[in-house]
Amino acid sequence: MQTVKMVVTGPFNAGKTEFIRSVSEIDVVSTERKITAEAERIKDTTTVAMDFGRITVDQDLVLYLFGTPGQKRFDFMWEILSEGMLGFIVMVDSSRPETFREARGILETFRAYAPTPYVVAANKQDKDDAWDLEDMRIALRLDPKVKLLECIATDKENVKTVLLELLFSILAEMDTAE
């Protein structure tokens, strides 16, 4: 049996948990635990919030969805996340421009560490004060090649579309790598 992963990242409150909940067949397991930064001999602790969701494909294949805030102390989670990771989704709350800078930093970190395909989900597009995609693309300084997708994490069909777009990108990546 094989397990593969997709990682959903983004700033706090972007809608990661909601996104995973919309498609997961199990109740999303949200963890909020403290881990000690032993490696750096730092006394204080870092809170790591992670969500797990699951989609069983068939007897031999399971897809796990991991939700994680892209923290600065990212190295701790890297081993868990990177194994078998197909790609990642950066969630951004379209109605909170104050989080765009952080989202950009998270994207930059993930992209540099994980050479896998990714898409950016402009979430909460149902809200009145959601920014337009084209403005967000500029604000987030996304290359025209990067997929920036409208998203409403509470809408299952919409979440499916985002996941499919990421999978299409992964397929395309395999084709160009040939």
Partner: peptide, 13 residues
Amino acid sequence: SLINRLIDRIRKL
């Protein structure tokens, strides 16, 4: 083929 299986599965969700 793995990715295509995932695509088929998610479409049917």
